[in-house]
Design a protein around this nucleic acid. Structure first.
Length: 600
RNA sequence: GCGCCCGUAGCUCAGCUGGAUAGAGCAUCAGGCUUCGAACCUGAGGGUCGGGCGUUCGAAUCGCUCCGGGCGCACCA
């Protein structure tokens, strides 16, 4: 990559001037300071000189092609000459392609994400795991890793006992196919009427009544036990519940544009549990705890709560299944890293599971990472599937789309395919918001914020892209076509292929400060993508795309592209910059699962 | 009680492997459409970075401590 070469050249020049010193380079906060910065503090201290003086000395001493060196207080800044900055960036984006990507290097990364529970509906809470996981999978693929996307479906456990017990109590006799509304339940809105939703109603009712009658808990446990023992009726119902859930999940995944390489839920590990427990036993760490439970003590690694492997009644628990899954994944994938994109409330659980796996097999040490995220609360309190106060993801996506449609009707009533564009923008709003504030901190859901369309939002970035495409269309020739991917995009694609384009013969027209700032922000994209991989967060990428879009908007208002008084050279170079920007934006959004519209 | 996370502008948040005047958006105020899309651009005001102590040439960033909020702490996932 051209920018990487520049960085290396600068580093080597510094190393030559400062033998034996550790050279750390930074990216200045603003492009007018320069393209690369060398803070002199540390080296100056080691050499017993003043950092400002050192910067000044280095500025006169070092000579770089295509760049000037400036001492700015204690910093030595390297600033490319404008035409050099332009030619490097345009070469990256128009000629080399897959800007900021890395060639395949064989590292295998597993990403476990989404993992919804069967028979619990897909809520806004599931969006975070799903889209963070999708973005991590995409970014790692872009950076040359071999990625396996794993959906660890919650299709096993005592909750199924709950569902089976509830079904037997209130549905089997009068509504066995769950195809009619329950008399005792609140009326369901038309668009949600489905067997799955009625299953959800059963679940909510069971938990409500269980509060008053704790003995029902035993009923649920007994049903799970029957399920685990292979009882035919329990299995039949479980299979059915699972099917109707998966069909709904698939509809949502299709809408979100995410996909998986494996959908092995917890039930998949059912026949691997005993060998997993055997492996733990073989490591001589399994002990009997209270009530006959089988546990692993973890005080020696700083975890006070032991990890339970088998309950007192001999049935498995989710830790058992996660340990079994870890062992299975080692033998199946021989992975280098495995990321678990699961809520922060499960931090202790994963510490325990990782610790157990590490004790069973040292191979696991350092390969497992829990990527936690905060929960989404409602203004009136926590969301709870059991209590039924949840926000459904599909409702959020529908609402966002509706709000976009209203704006389209007002601002662009002639827009073709308005419905499809509204879907793209609504999705952009919801997903970008999610990525922007990808934090461990919990957030309070409000409609206003979740589907905001102004300011630092997905639609702002999408708008920049649409304006560029509009300019490229007006430019005629092949310009617009060059801004489009050369293949149809789906979730199997990480690096978008674009046609290779020759550099403009002249770079006249790009010396303006706004154009140069746009080039500077484009230069920041590779670091942002690497940050996604390093931090397991999409925040840096979302912020960089905003910076690029802002820089473009400013360039657009300051530097006319197609005005008749522009020379051909100015026009061509500015079009090339537009094209490069469109590609960068589309690629960056795509990694986050967001589409870039050509019109809006 | 113990452990982990969070506390930055009126609001929502970036920045946290220590480094250049602490940055955005929303909201408020003031400007900008007879030429490429105003879902935009330009500018202004607004901050004891929860409090204190410490380490350092330098702390929003590291350590200790206190305050405030959240999550978790073996038979749910």
């Amino acid at each position: 990559m051209v920018m990487e070469r520049l960085k290396e050249a600068f580093r080597m020049a510094l190393a030559k001037a400062l033998p034996g010193q550790d050279i750390v380079l930074e990216r200045p906060r603003s492009g007018d300071m320069g393209d690369l910065a060398f803070p002199c503090f540390r080296v100056a201290k080691a050499m017993g000189t003043n950092p400002a003086q050192l910067a000044k000395d280095l500025a006169t001493q070092i000579v770089m092609d295509d760049a000037e060196l400036l001492a700015a207080g204690p910093y030595l800044n390297l600033r490319l000459r404008p035409e050099a900055r332009a030619s490097r960036m345009l070469e990256n984006l128009l000629v080399t392609g897959a800007y900021g990507s890395a060639p395949a290097h064989g590292e295998t990364v597993l990403v476990e994400y989404s993992s919804p529970n069967i028979a619990k509906l897909f809520t806004i809470g599931h969006l975070r795991s799903t889209m963070i996981g999708h973005t991590l999978a995409q970014a790692n693929r872009y950076l040359g890793c071999k990625v396996q996307r794993l959906n660890h479906l919650g299709d096993w456990g005592t909750q199924f006992g709950t569902l089976l017990a509830a079904y037997k109590r209130w549905a089997e006799a009068e509504n066995p196919l769950l195809d009619q509304d329950f008399e005792w339940a609140e009326e369901i809105p038309e668009k949600r009427r489905s067997p799955l939703f009625r299953l959800f109603q059963l679940y909510v009712r069971f938990h409500a009544e269980e509060e008053k009658e704790p003995a029902m808990r035993d009923e649920a446990r007994a049903w799970f036990r029957r399920l685990e023992e292979g009882d035919a009726e329990a299995r039949r119902l479980w299979t059915w519940f699972r099917e109707i859930s998966l069909a709904t999940f698939q509809r949502i995944y299709d809408r979100l544009g995410v996909g998986f390489d494996a959908m092995n839920g917890e039930a998949f590990y059912e026949d691997k549990l005993s060998s997993a427990v055997e492996a733990v036993k073989a490591a001589k760490i399994l002990e009997e705890g209270e009530g006959g439970a089988q546990i692993v003590r973890l005080e020696d690694v700083g975890i006070q709560t032991p990890c339970m492997m088998l309950k007192g009644d001999g049935t498995s628990i989710y830790a058992t299944r996660d340990v079994a899954a870890g062992l299975y994944r080692k033998s199946t994938y021989n992975f280098d890293r495995c990321l678990y994109v699961v809520g922060a409330e499960q931090i202790l659980h994963f510490q325990q599971v990782f610790a157990v796996l590490g004790k069973v097999d040292a191979w696991f040490q350092g390969r497992l990472t829990h990527t936690p995220f905060g929960m989404i609360n409602l203004p009136e309190g926590k969301m709870s599937t059991r209590k039924g106060n949840v926000i459904f993801l599909e409702d959020v996506l529908d609402e966002a789309k509706e709000r976009v449609l209203a704006i389209i009707r007002e601002k662009n009533p002639e827009l073709p395919q308005a419905d499809e564009v509204a879907e793209t923008l609504g999705m952009g709003a919801v997903l970008f918001f999610n990525a922007l504030n990808d934090r461990v901190k919990s957030i309070t859901f409000t409609w206003e914020r979740a589907v905001a369309l102004d300011g630092d939002t997905g639609p702002y970035v999408q708008y920049a892209h649409a304006r560029i495409m509009s300019v490229l269309r007006k430019a005629g020739g092949d310009w617009a076509q060059r801004g489009r991917p050369t293949v149809a995009l789906d979730h199997e694609v990480a690096a978008i292929p674009f046609e290779t384009v020759a550099l403009p013969t002249s770079l006249e027209g790009l010396e303006d400060a706004a154009a140069q700032n746009l080039l500077f922000e484009l230069a920041g994209l590779p670091d942002a993508i690497r940050a996604v991989q390093r931090e397991n967060m999409a925040t840096a990428l979302a912020r960089q795309l905003l910076a690029i879009a802002k820089a473009f908007s400013s360039f657009y208002t300051n530097c006319p592209i197609l005005w008749p008084e522009n020379s051909d050279a100015v026009r061509e170079s500015r079009l090339a910059l537009c094209l490069a920007t469109a590609r960068a934006l589309r690629q960056g959004l795509w990694l986050m699962g967001i589409k870039a519209p050509e019109e809006m």
